[in-house]
């Protein structure tokens, strides 16, 4: 398959930092400007001046921290590091490095006791009972993501800032997110950027190279990577989604462009199967006027800002 590549930014070693498919290349100057104004407007319209970001040491949350600092100043940003006992120490070191460079406030909240308190630890059952000791990595991963969410929303109160989302478009479309976990936020500045575009923007705003180069991982167990989990590389997945969703090409047209038909079909199922994660849950229509159905107001309108 022919894949035109745009000029990806180079690292300190003179090598491209990542692979950038040509059709995904964005004008990072315009993106930064739009996102800066978006972040400011979201906070102003909600009556907030501060923001909270859960910083994992990965590129998505790293980029969001940089963008928020650029928009409102690092002094108004709180980064919360929430490692679990098996989390990668390298990720934590990268997160701490980003915090140092940004000069923002930060806090480490270990979530091990929260997760282990439920599932149990070393043969001692937790709140989930004996069965919890056998919980799959999938259940544990989702639980950990939701514990991080509760921590962020608590810090939203103590710091007095809105929780900023860090999910990208690729993971949202294929459903590689935890409902009410990592996807929970007040607003998301990078949710319409594919992973390849996140990388491009991260390089433009100065996110450290080690964070940009690192293989993306949900860090649910040591050595896990997104791309091994999904069985497809981000540049290929991003291109496929770009042509399928943004450019409205059919599965047949994608196959004719050289995409593996089995992959096209698999991604199609992932996107359709995760529709529920991208939408507000439906409310049974009973009354004359129902939120989201025929009661349609802007989320931010006169009177909606915190007093």
């Amino acid at each position: 398959m022919s894949t035109g590549a745009a000029a990806a930014p180079l690292g300190a070693d003179g090598q491209p930092l990542f692979e950038l498919p040509a059709e995904l290349a964005i004008d990072t100057g315009v993106a930064r400007r739009v996102i800066r104004e978006f972040i400011r407007a979201q906070l102003r319209q909600a009556g907030f001046e501060r923001a909270v970001v859960g910083l994992s040491g990965g590129i998505d949350s790293g980029l969001v921290a940089y963008l928020v600092a650029e928009a409102i100043g690092a002094e108004r940003l709180l980064c919360v590091l929430m490692p679990y006992r098996t989390s990668s120490p390298a990720s934590r070191a990268d997160a701490e490095d980003a915090v140092r460079r940004l000069g923002c406030a930060s806090e480490v909240v270990e979530i091990s006791a929260m997760v282990d308190g439920f599932f149990g630890l070393e043969g001692a059952p937790g709140a989930a009972g004996r069965e919890g000791l056998e919980a799959s990595p999938h259940r544990r991963g989702n639980f950990a993501a939701r514990m991080r969410m509760t921590v962020l929303y608590d810090r939203s109160v103590t710091w007095g800032g809105l929780v900023v989302g860090t999910g990208n478009k690729t993971e949202s479309l294929v459903g590689y997110t935890t409902l009410f976990g990592d996807s929970a936020c007040a607003f998301n500045p990078i949710g319409d950027l594919y992973k390849s575009q996140v990388r491009q923007l991260a390089a433009a705003v100065g996110v450290p190279e080690t964070i940009i180069r690192k293989a993306p991982s949900a860090d649910l167990w040591p050595g896990q990577t997104d791309e091994a989990d999904a069985g497809v590389s981000y540049p290929v997945l991003d291109r496929l989604l770009h042509w399928r969703i943004d450019k409205r090409r059919s599965g047949e047209e994608l196959a004719a462009m050289g995409f593996d038909p089995a992959l096209v079909e698999r991604v199609e199922r992932m996107v359709a199967g995760s529709e529920f994660k991208r939408q507000v849950p439906p409310v049974a229509k009973l009354g004359p006027r129902t939120a989201g159905v025929d009661y349609l107001y802007p989320r931010r309108r006169p009177g909606s800002a915190r007093g």
Binding site: A6, E23, A25, I26, D27, G29, V30, A31, V34
Partner: peptide, 9 residues
Amino acid sequence: LAATHEVGL
């Protein structure tokens, strides 16, 4: 925001 546009928009 495709980079190929006149002003990136």
